[in-house]
């Protein structure tokens, strides 16, 4: 006996495709239109002219300087930290795991307030630094500290999962061959996870570059000291929106470059595997 074919089956299929197309188009436009609008808001010559504006240059320089320091600190401290964290069982490991993830869900402004309460001029630790004439809040150091706090989870989580997933046979073989833990880490573990570590670092860079809330709370908004690009966008929109939009466009371009870099790296990794 043949199973009867419902009469309106073709219609239903067409309807499904139409619905899918509408949804895909809607989501794409919702994400793409604001970005495109940025590029159409000011003529190219104005964009290029604003690039020589001292405020823009200062924000650009400060952003890159602080973000690169952040990245170096996160990689140098974060890589061995993630390694020990995954390889050693210690009491309170679950708590540390939660703390690593916390900045991802914590509102950045709250992170900034928390940093201020600890490191500010009258803060729990900050007062002692202040006694020795080492101010921390509202300095470039504070910008870097805010970025590390907010952006490091991207790298730490990635490094942790890479180290967890690495076949233990590599490190164990290296051990039986007589290699010291440092040698194993440097010559086996890190090179075998390098691709993933780089993409984690790129995401951290992106997040640090875009940092706003924690920075403005903890480091303030002083041109040349703590006014990074996102803060300069904020100020620009209130005074000279051309500058605000010009910096926004630069940030969009950098973000795109970051996404492409991550794509390329992960594709290369997949190819290797």
């Amino acid at each position: 006996m043949q199973i009867p074919v419902p009469k309106n089956r073709n219609h239903r299929r067409t309807l499904t495709y139409v619905l899918a197309a509408v949804l895909i188009l809607a989501v794409t436009l919702y994400l793409a239109l604001p970005i495109a609008a940025l590029f159409f808001r000011i003529p190219p010559e104005e964009f290029i002219a604003s690039l020589s504006n001292p405020e823009v240059i200062s924000a650009l320089y400060l952003s890159f300087f602080t973000t690169i320091i952040t990245l170096i600190v996160v990689i140098l401290v974060g890589t061995p930290f993630a390694y020990f964290h995954t390889r050693i069982d210690y009491p309170g490991k679950v708590i540390v795991d939660t703390l690593i993830d916390l900045p991802l869900v914590l509102p950045p402004a709250v992170a900034g307030v928390a940093l201020l309460v600890l490191w500010g001029r009258v803060g729990l630790l900050g007062r002692y630094f202040n006694m020795f004439g080492i101010p921390i809040a509202f300095t470039t150091t504070a910008v870097i500290m805010a970025q590390i706090f907010v952006a490091s989870p991207f790298y730490l989580r990635q490094a942790k999962s890479l180290f967890e997933q690495l076949d233990p046979a590599y490190e164990q073989t290296a051990r039986t061959l007589g290699a010291s833990p440092f040698r194993i880490f440097a010559l086996i573990t890190v090179p075998l996870t390098a691709g993933g570590l780089v993409s984690g670092a790129v995401m951290t860079f992106g997040r640090a570059l875009g940092e706003f809330g924690a920075t403005i709370m903890f480091a303030g908004n002083l041109p040349g000291v703590s006014q990074t690009m996102p803060l300069a966008v904020y100020v620009g929109m209130e005074s000279d929106y051309t500058i605000g939009i010009a910096i926004s466009i630069i940030l969009v371009i950098i973000s795109f470059a970051i996404m492409i870099a991550v794509r390329l790296i992960t594709r290369r990794e997949a190819f290797h595997a």
Binding site: D167, A169, Y170, Q172, T173, A174, R175, T176, L177, G178, A179, S180, I188, P191, L192, H272
Partner: peptide, 19 residues
């Protein structure tokens, strides 16, 4: 410790260092 036992150990998947 394992690194000082001087035992040649070939793991199941050979675990050659691919890089």
């Amino acid at each position: 410790p394992a690194e000082d036992r001087r035992i040649g150990y070939v793991f199941q998947n050979s675990a050659v260092f691919p890089h």
